[in-house]
Amino acid sequence: MSERVVPAAGRQRRRPTKQGVVLSEELIVATALRLIEEHGADALSVRRLGRALGADPSSLYRYFRHTDDLMLAIADELIGHSMRTWKPTGDWLADLRELGLRMHAGALAHPRAAVLSAHRVTGRAREIQAVESILGVLRRAGFPDPEAVRIYHAFVDQALAFGALDSAGTALPRAAREAEVEVWRSTYGRLPAATHPHIAATSRHLVATMRTSSYPAALDLFLTAARTRLDHVRADQAG
């Protein structure tokens, strides 16, 4: 795509496409998400999107300047999926834990798109609302502004990083995933204590746990550290 997007007021397509649908930003993003999950990053082209929508590829310029503009909209849509039904309860630890798990699950629901978008900053409505909501949870919990930003940054980066990591694993062919899981049993599970005493002592736990994501455990460790930090802040304020 090139730099020739149509202003928002002029975007509405009045006639249906060949498939009988009316183009919209939401429809284009949903179609692009589906194509990425089916075919990978190469699916994000004007020509392929036009075919999938039954529309002239040039009509997509009414909504997006270029494919990277569309990629940012996709990233923002993934954020929206995670935030859509999340409501803070006032228990900041429980609220952040639930949101972190939602972000991780959202990435796994769209693994190829998550890998492509995890590092992007969209500046769009859903991302802005997510930043506002998370900072609000932290500030209401009592974190001073510099600490709130520090915790926000680490929380979001952890969720996005694990989402991308686990999504990359999910996107592997099934045979490859199963072969990697088997390595923990067939290789690590058979190392002798004489040469690898620590692996041998814990091998049954490695076999049991390394097949699943460590994100829930990492999230709990992070939140415990954040709670400890807040306790220190309160102690300093009281002193």
Rank of each mutant, 00 (worst) to 15 (best):
M1H: 08
M1Q: 05
E3P: 01
R4M: 08
R11W: 04
Q12P: 00
G20V: 07
V21T: 12
S24N: 01
E25S: 14
E26W: 01
I28N: 02
V46C: 03
R47K: 08
R48G: 07
R48L: 12
G50E: 08
A52N: 01
A55V: 03
S59W: 02
F64P: 00
R65W: 00
D68W: 12
D68A: 10
D69K: 02
I74V: 14
I74G: 03
I74E: 01
G80S: 13
H81A: 11
S82E: 13
P88D: 10
P88A: 09
D91S: 13
W92E: 09
L93V: 14
D95F: 07
E98Y: 05
G100T: 11
L108C: 11
L108E: 11
A109K: 08
H110L: 11
P111E: 10
L116F: 09
L116C: 08
S117P: 06
R124V: 05
R126T: 08
E127C: 09
E127Q: 15
I128P: 01
I128R: 15
I128H: 10
I128T: 14
Q129R: 14
E132V: 08
V137S: 03
V137L: 03
R139M: 11
A141F: 04
F143E: 04
V149L: 14
V149A: 12
R150Y: 10
R150W: 02
H153S: 15
A154R: 15
A154T: 14
V156N: 08
D157I: 02
Q158A: 14
A159S: 13
A164D: 09
L165V: 13
D166C: 07
S167R: 02
L172T: 12
P173L: 13
A175P: 05
V181M: 12
V181R: 15
V183N: 07
W184G: 02
R185P: 00
P192W: 03
P192R: 04
A193G: 15
A193C: 04
A194L: 09
A194K: 13
H198C: 03
A201T: 03
T202R: 12
S203N: 01
T212I: 06
T212C: 05
S213E: 04
P216R: 07
A217H: 06
A218W: 03
F222C: 07
L223V: 09
T224D: 15
R227Q: 14
T228A: 15
L230R: 08
D231A: 15
V233K: 10
R234W: 04
Q237E: 10
Q237V: 10
Q237Y: 06
G239Y: 03
